[in-house]
């Protein structure tokens, strides 16, 4: 009855094997590439940070800690994240909810509000430099209104310097949060909201009990992403204040470029990596929770 000979079987086996291997062949280049450019430097960098001329050492970390700029940089970075991110989320949420009301010209508003998505932090720093610099546009406006000028970016005014950086970052990086939230809002069926309205919920009640809970996954994703990216901020501060407001990544650049010490640079980079990985672990955990929980 069965005419299939052994030759046919091997042929079928071969075809099956080929299709099973195809996806692996397709992802192989990306795996190799990413391993070469992520894993290798990572290991190499750990080596750099921990080896001195005479074998393993913690001296680079010691030098990093002894540097007078290190702790201010760490403090500034932390402060920036703590102050910036809540502001950014409030701002982005406001913008998204405004757009949700479908005002006239909403297409134009959306375009304008997401333009900074494609602007680098260096460019954003330079743009706001034109505003905040001593003889810049803000002081021009103030003086024509009869006020005295103010040195916003001077190291004597750390508060205004910090605020300038926060405003520039708020301007530049809120669009990312906005886009994620708008995408999230689109994924929420209007029915729920309408049902709540039919049952007499006010706008704030609906926001609090219907919209925000459903937006939670998007907000969480945006939060982690922004945290990781905020850790990497440096060119804004560099453009606005030079080294007056040091940030961690900026210090890496300083050590590498001006002080010509890649080992200490690698040590700081590892610090940043550790914090980032913690954030990323949170990220992955969230992803798992989300896929695990019935929605």
């Amino acid at each position: 009855m069965l005419e299939a000979g052994p030759i046919e079987y091997t042929l079928q086996g071969f075809v099956a094997m080929k299709t099973a291997r195809r996806p692996l062949l397709l992802i192989a280049p990306s795996l190799v590439f990413l391993t070469a450019l992520f894993a290798w430097p990572l290991i190499f960098g750990i080596g750099q940070a921990f080896t001195g001329t005479g074998g393993p050492t913690a001296a680079h970390f010691q030098r990093m800690l002894d540097d007078p700029y290190f702790w201010p940089a760490a403090r500034n970075t932390a402060l920036l994240i703590v102050v910036l991110i809540p502001l950014q989320f409030a701002f982005a949420l406001t913008m998204a909810l405004l757009l949700r009301e479908r005002p006239r010209f909403s297409g134009f508003y959306f375009y304008l509000w997401v333009v900074p998505l494609a602007i680098s932090d260096l460019a954003a720093g330079l743009v706001w430099l034109a505003v905040f610099t001593d003889r810049g546009y803000l002081n021009s406006v103030l003086s024509s209104l009869g006020f005295d000028g103010y040195s916003f970016l001077s190291h004597e005014n750390p508060a205004s310097m910090f605020i300038a950086v926060v405003i520039a970052e708020l301007w530049r990086a809120t669009s990312l949060v906005l886009v994620i939230i708008v995408a999230g809002l689109q994924g929420i069926p209007k029915d729920y909201d309408e049902a709540a309205e039919v049952f007499g919920a006010s706008y704030w009640q609906r926001l609090r009990h219907v919209i925000l809970p459903q937006l939670r996954p998007s907000l969480q994703v945006a939060l982690i992403l922004r945290t990781i990216l905020a850790l990497e901020t440096f060119a804004v501060a560099q453009a606005l204040t030079g080294r007056n407001m040091p940030l961690l990544v900026g210090e890496t650049y300083q050590w590498y470029d001006f002080l010509q010490n890649p080992s200490v640079a690698a040590a700081i980079a590892l610090m940043i990596l550790t914090v980032s990985l913690l954030a990323a672990a949170g990220y992955l955990r969230l992803m798992r929770d989300q896929t695990g929980s019935p929605r």
Binding site: L37, F38, P41, L42, E232, A265, L270, S276
Partner: peptide, 16 residues
């Protein structure tokens, strides 16, 4: 996803 979480600076110094 993990690779997206790696800061650029971590790669750049050793890559140099």
């Amino acid at each position: 996803l993990l690779t997206r979480a790696l800061p650029i600076v971590v790669l750049s110094v050793p890559l140099a």
